[in-house]
Design a protein around this nucleic acid. Structure first.
Lengths: 248, 248
DNA sequence: GGGGACTCTTCCGTCCAGTGGAAGCGGGCC
DNA sequence: GGCCCGCTTCCACTGGACGGAAGAGTCCCC
């Protein structure tokens, strides 16, 4: 029973955050062993920390013994939404009421889009986005709308990387994407067809405050209804303008 | 420079959770000193832990130097919503589209109602509820709808306490509340008038699964429009039934 | 039914990271 | 200047965190 030769240089706080970070959209439920592996902690350490987090309702134990994010974290997280989300929500609803389509609000975070809000009805659309979820920018409507209005140096560095290609329709060739972004700037909105998911297409518009793309609104629908996209552009643009006005 | 005489019996994890718990709906922004005081930690300890949490984006520093809940916690929290919230959302939207009123979804948590979702338009209504927020049960529509269908022993223990009285209209007298609950069971829904906030009234219906009140839906409107409440009862009841069916 | 593979839980010696008092810093106010 | 207040940094001390290992429980296959 030799004492542990602890890995130095990590605070307990960082270990706790590592445990929480083991959870993401693709890993909502994890066993203790998976948590330990994904967070890089010894099993016994993970065991103790997880138990403490569970006691604080930051993690929850499911019926099958695995763990998931607990209600306490949800409650705390609800304190975070800022002015953007609160101001935008009524307008997203208005857009939903007028069109009946799935409506998204997203911002750029690093090289990805981060979905802030989602208003979804009962119309079945393949679920790829969710509030709190992240996707690459170039294959999504909101991502492209945001990317098109970024600074040139940012666009250049985005395009210089190897771009993911989730579907055969995804445009990843830098030259073609670059022209696509110019077209978005010219017309003020973005359209995509099965670039992120086979079976869905989208339209999106940037929310510009003083010329800066602070966020984007988008609608997603089944790709067999893609001919209805143009009809959605006008309400989409109004929504974006209204949100921008509410922020100013 | 004597070493600290540490307070024993608290793990670092519990201290971290204490710091996070210092934030709530009435305290969204806290200075370091406030965090230390509210969490019961020494200032220097709070200083270090807060810095670590900030580094992990679990807390965010605002422009004025105070702290608020960071985006990381929001993202993590978004992983928590369960079947109830996902299944109910489309129906809440449908109710909103049909009525244009503020719609809530809430569950009982202990002796309080916990708001899980809120669909709010641009109609101005005094804001008391928010997702992640808690309110006492007896003065709110959703709270009463839930309370009415609880087990007798629970109702008895709820009524046996000293009940808060947020407005002069709040009914707190046990006998009267008890009769009110019986009326709710008889008619299937609850109505309140300025019992939680002066200026707003509400209607709410329980979502019953196998006779159990698993949640409640409610609408809130300005009290000067209270005559429109009866008209909202029928769509409210349909919504509650639809959500119950979606859960079964 | 026995053995292997797996995950979870508990135990415990070692030792370092966490702790809090105190001092130092900076700004606002009288 | 002198005071107050909140934030930051420093440091000696020590008790709680760490992880290896063993034990318990479960499942499956031979």
């Amino acid at each position: 029973m030799s004492g542990g030769s602890r890995e130095p240089g990590r605070s307990v706080t960082s270990r706790v955050l590592a445990i929480l970070s083991a959870f993401d959209g693709d890993h909502r439920r994890l066993t203790l062993t998976e948590i330990a592996r994904r967070s890089g902690l010894a099993l016994s350490t993970a065991h103790r920390l997880v138990a403490e987090l569970e006691a604080g309702r930051a993690l929850r134990r499911t019926s099958d013994g695995s763990f998931c994010v607990g209600p306490r974290l949800w409650e705390l997280g609800q304190l975070a939404p800022g002015r953007l989300q609160r101001a935008a929500h009524p307008w997203l609803l208005e857009l939903f009421s007028a069109t009946g389509e799935n409506v998204h609000l997203a911002v750029r975070d690093g090289m990805e889009v981060l979905y802030l809000d989602k208003v979804y009805g009962r119309r079945a659309v393949p679920i790829v986005s969710r509030p709190g979820g992240r996707l690459p920018m170039h294959p999504t409507g909101v991502g492209r709308a945001l990317l098109a209005y970024e600074q040139d140096w940012f666009i250049a560095s985005y395009l210089s990387r190897t771009l993911e290609r989730p579907t055969p329709h995804t445009v990843t060739e830098p030259g073609r994407l670059s022209r696509e972004l110019a077209a978005i700037r010219a017309q003020g909105y973005a359209l995509t067809y099965e670039e992120m998911t086979v079976g869905s297409c989208s339209a999106a518009a940037p929310i510009l405050v003083e010329g800066h793309p602070v966020a984007a609104v988008g609608v997603v629908l089944s790709s067999h209804r893609s001919r209805e996209l143009p009809r959605l552009v006008s309400p989409l643009l109004s929504t974006a303008r209204n949100i921008a006005a509410a922020l100013a």
